[in-house]
Design a protein around this nucleic acid. Structure first.
Lengths: 255, 255
DNA sequence: CGTCCCGTTTGATCTGGATCAACCGGTCGC
DNA sequence: GCGACCGGTTGATCCAGATCAAACGGGACG
């Protein structure tokens, strides 16, 4: 069933409010795109040397720490962002505080598919995060005469959409056990994709974040993980989880 | 209990009955794009006269009836589609048969954001449907040197993604009552958007389709609708629903 | 005109996951 | 070194929505 107040506590909400109001301090140095570690993973992988120099001119590196907002739902969408380091949490809130995490953004992920002129969701840093920030205007201008770049952005949007559809299936039709297993397997795949191929799956987000991503409560996530551990499918370690029986997890996830 | 004899005269019921969503059903003989009723709503709205003639050359009108498949998940994604009449159901299945409807496609909607070379979901006709079918290759070629068209497709993808995120919030964090109310309000808005602005909301899809869209069972959808009727929020009519208290529905939907 | 069929409604009961409530263990500030 | 705090775990109970079961009603067809 769907929980009533499974989002933030009122204290957390107040904190989030303050965060939102406070302008994000800008500790940016100008970025050197040609040296960017995640360029090939990001939309910038479609840019040649000349493009990069121009891109660098309009981009600005911004660094954020734990729980700092990158942008907030409802605000004017004046910037687009490229995550270059760390993990961001993307989410939507209901007026009464219920929260749905709609995704986690990893290095290389692009946050800028804006159909409206306001952000339709919020994004903040789960851990230390760096983003490449561009004004929406200069970004639009930059795209203007670079159709290959637009095509790349389009591919990213299509991939994002496919992930969203997969997540709808998960939220609407999978059991708690399947949700948690699918999350672990999917998260591991995404980490592997950016080169982090450890046998221990890093989980920088809190249990609450996972719960809000899977449409569950924190207690159910915790119980399910401990059960998985009891059943020798994994070991819970500090900052993550170590998969012992990946086959079983994948079977549960219904891959 | 006499079921749904809810105080409507037979005249009213007849008036409310079966209205195809198509603005102009079956107007197309060969694909005459320049005469297409939904062009301005669709991605083709970005095409000029010359583009249209070329588009027409590669497009083929296909007509489908109730429950016929437009394409199926897992198949090679050889075509892209533009719905021109009727309503299609987009869905994903789990191996054990659980189904998640990920959306309903209306005239003007584009089905072609393919990140992979296989369809990641299935689409079939809920009622009589016409689609504009193009081979993925010729479509890709067509886009090639038409950046304005690509930009239009991108806008459509971004809108689609935003809807998907809204749906994740619904699936993960809303109650059954909120889900049904949100569905009615959202569906009404989409119908209004394509020009069908009747006070009776046409519901060409089955209760099962609605249930699978909202992550509920058919019984819960049915019960919730009857309750809404009992509470005078709406009247259930053949082929749809008549909203009596739109304000209340919108409040429930959390708009 | 009857009856078969199928989508829908309604009723009774069950249960997965939510809610409520401790409690645990690490860390931070003093 | 100690208490407060915070994220996480565990236990007891509850309940929204699922499941099981039956009946209804309208359309199709002989």
């Amino acid at each position: 069933m769907t929980g009533r107040c499974s989002g933030l506590s009122s204290a957390e909400r107040a904190e989030a409010m303050i965060r939102t109001i406070a302008p994000t301090p800008n500790r940016a140095l100008s970025g050197r795109c040609s040296a960017c570690a995640v360029r090939s993973l990001s939309i910038c992988g479609a840019l040649d040397q000349a493009d990069l120099i121009e891109f660098e001119r309009i981009a600005r590196q911004v660094h954020l720490t734990h729980n700092e907002a990158i942008f907030t739902a409802g605000q004017a969408a004046t910037s687009v962002h490229n995550v270059t380091a760390g993990v961001a949490r993307l989410y939507k809130l209901l007026p009464d505080g219920r929260r749905q995490v709609i995704g986690f953004a990893l290095p290389g992920d692009f946050l800028g598919a804006m159909p409206s002129d306001r952000y339709s969701f919020s994004a903040d840093a789960i851990e230390a995060v760096s983003v490449c920030r561009l004004s929406a205007e200069s970004f639009a201008q930059f795209i203007e005469h670079r159709p290959h770049f637009l095509r790349r952005i389009n591919e990213f949007a299509a991939r994002e959409l496919m992930l969203a559809q997969e997540q709808m299936l998960l939220l609407g039709r999978r059991t708690a056990e399947e949700k948690v297993a699918a999350f672990l397997v999917g998260w591991r795949a995404r980490l592997a994709n950016i080169g982090d191929q450890q046998h221990t799956i890093a989980l920088p987000m809190s249990r609450q974040d996972i719960a809000d991503y899977l449409g569950l409560t924190i207690e159910t996530v915790s119980r399910t993980l401990t059960r998985f551990e009891r059943e020798k499918m994994l070991v819970i370690v500090s900052g993550g989880v170590r998969l012992l029986d990946a086959k079983r997890a994948e079977a549960m996830a219904g891959v």
